[in-house]
Design a protein around this nucleic acid. Structure first.
Lengths: 344, 344
DNA sequence: TTTATCTCTGTGAACGCTCACAGATTCAGG
DNA sequence: CCTGAATCTGTGAGCGTTCACAGAGATAAA
């Protein structure tokens, strides 16, 4: 129980109570060797009794490190970044680091700079940036970080900077090939906002996979990750009178919207149109029909990111590498063989 | 651009470059009066030139405050807490506070204590706890916080501690009355985990609202907020051969699962059974059918919480109060009048 | 002119901790 | 018994700030 009003308890208070010097108390706290067992015990007891907690500011001031990681995120209201964030927090705590946290609301360099500004003074030991958007330029970010180790999560595959990513191209190829193997030849798409790396990768990979199979993409529209935008995009695709039997949607929420749009027009899924999502949010299995999608393991991503950041803190000179995680196809009931005959 | 290897830039470096004393530089930084305009300009230029950033550890050490808020959350993987978190971050940043952040993974006192432990040394100016679960006892938390101002978010309505809450009882009454006014008399429920305050409040309010209308609750089952649990619960309700025309579900995800369960058994919504959710997640409007639910404004909740915390930091002695936000009914297509005749 | 007040600037000390060093024991080996 | 190492403990200094104070120059009032 912390004293309510009084001065904070310091090293000296503990020292006085246990009858040793402040230095000895410091040694006990930091588990230095060469402290007699009974001394240690006495000090520990005093610490307990006074409810002493080392002042991190003071420690950080002299050691020039803070046992603190900064997490910078963008798009925390989206499923992916939020999941990553949660897992990063867990991993960081387990590694004994505190977290100071900053979400960026616009993708401007300015707001990025503002976020960094607030970290500059904290002497953070490392920075983990969840920057899934293209125009938060990696280079700028690296410059802003100066010599503080930085690991980026959710950036393009193949980027030559320390990072942890999910191979989105792979995931997109997975669903697209799945549809092709079912016999679909006329495949449309709804992409995410194309300034997101992931959206871009999924989109390009969709195109390429079709090309490899000597198929021409029917059409694609850009959504903003929300169910509403998926609804609209699917509606437009249909309104244009386009003829397709499968729809590759860049995330599960938009797929939900798209499903509704198709239903509204009396189309059956998957009999008339097969539909796929991306992410495998927990609800996807309960869509109607259950959604065939791509599972991304954000937990692993967060862990790997932190793990790698630790590595870089320990050895900042080590060559940059990229930790890559592969997503997996989750086959459910929203995809099926195309019907020989079709509607309108 | 931060120097890569070199020592950190300090007050003294700036002082030397601009030809004044460190104290004057300090004055400039903190906008003290009584600094000559040209001196101020020179200092600012030097700061710019050296890319100087005040060391927050040093500042915090001497001022005994850190311009930092701690956020403690539970259940960050759930929609509500996550939304609150995002908005708290935004509000805190706008108020010029940094955020140090800790998510709790179990509801034990132990893990609560561990989270606090990591804050003890930071000299945070205030703590904002998102603690939607019953057995994270408020009292324990208050004790752990000592004299640091604490505001709790998402705790029971009426709690005599500084807090910001959404009136969940009100929301639950809203949907229940909505169903009653449509003519439903046999109403079942799927609650959230009853160790969550919100789940409990929604549940009790459901019961009471029925009682007030002289109706008997048909039955209720407890879910865990996930679509999967909603699916299961709804299935069980049906398997028991219970006769009900409306189902009040404690959140939107479980409602999604419940909808599927009903559909799987050939029931139509709302013709056979009306169903309601809670939260109004962005996807709810795209469920099939679009979900009648209760909108909670987590944005406002986060803002109010931070705002109130500021107030308490400024005046820790002020009487505790509770900021209450009322949710609103969002009427969509998952509810309708009960059919006179019914199935099985 | 003198004195009081306002403006501006600088000097010591302190915040709570760790580091480098040095002193004091103990214990073994010659 | 002396020497050297290992073990244990204490002292000074400094990390980068701000605070309290004091001093100096300018301006206004007497």
């Amino acid at each position: 129980m912390a004293d309510s009003v009084s001065r904070r308890v310091t090293l000296n208070d503990v020292a006085r109570l246990s009858g040793v010097s402040y230095q000895t108390v410091s040694r006990v706290i930091n588990n230095h060797p060469y402290v007699a067992e009974d001394t240690r015990a006495r000090v520990l007891e005093a610490i307990e009794q006074l409810d002493y907690h080392p002042n991190k500011a003071a420690k950080s001031l002299v050691t020039r490190r803070s046992q603190t990681l900064a997490v910078i995120t963008y798009g925390l209201d989206k499923y992916g970044p939020a999941q990553i964030m949660i897992n990063v927090e867990r991993a960081a705590k387990e590694a004994g680091y505190d977290l100071i946290f900053s979400n960026i609301h616009e993708t401007s360099l300015e707001s990025m700079r503002a976020a960094m500004e607030s970290l500059e003074g904290w002497q953070v030991d490392g920075i983990l940036a969840i920057t899934p958007v293209a125009n938060i330029l990696c280079e700028e970010l690296r410059a802003l970080c100066g010599s503080v180790p930085l690991v980026q999560v959710d950036i393009p595959l193949g980027a030559q900077v320390p990072s942890a990513v999910i191979d989105q191209r792979w995931g997109s190829a997975l669903v697209t090939r799945h549809l092709i193997s079912l016999g679909h030849t006329r495949i449309a798409a709804i992409s995410g906002p194309l300034d997101w790396f992931g959206a871009q990768a999924r989109h390009e990979s969709w195109r390429e996979t079709l090309r490899e199979a000597r198929l021409t993409p029917v059409a694609s529209l850009e959504g903003d990750w929300t169910a509403g935008s998926g609804y609209q995009a699917a509606g437009q695709l249909l309104d244009r009178g386009l003829n397709f039997t499968a729809l590759v949607v860049a995330n599960d929420q938009m797929a939900l919207g798209a499903i509704r749009a198709l239903r509204d027009r009396g189309l059956r899924i998957p009999e008339d149109i097969s539909i796929t999502g991306f992410d495998d949010i927990p609800e996807a299995a309960y869509f109607d029909p259950p959604l065939t999608t791509v599972r991304q393991d954000f937990g692993v991503l967060g862990n790997k990111g932190v793990e790698y950041l630790m590595e870089r803190i320990a050895d900042p000179q080590a060559a940059a590498r990229q930790v890559v995680i592969r997503p997996a196809l989750v086959q459910r009931l929203s995809t099926g063989r195309p019907c020989p005959e079709r509607r309108t």
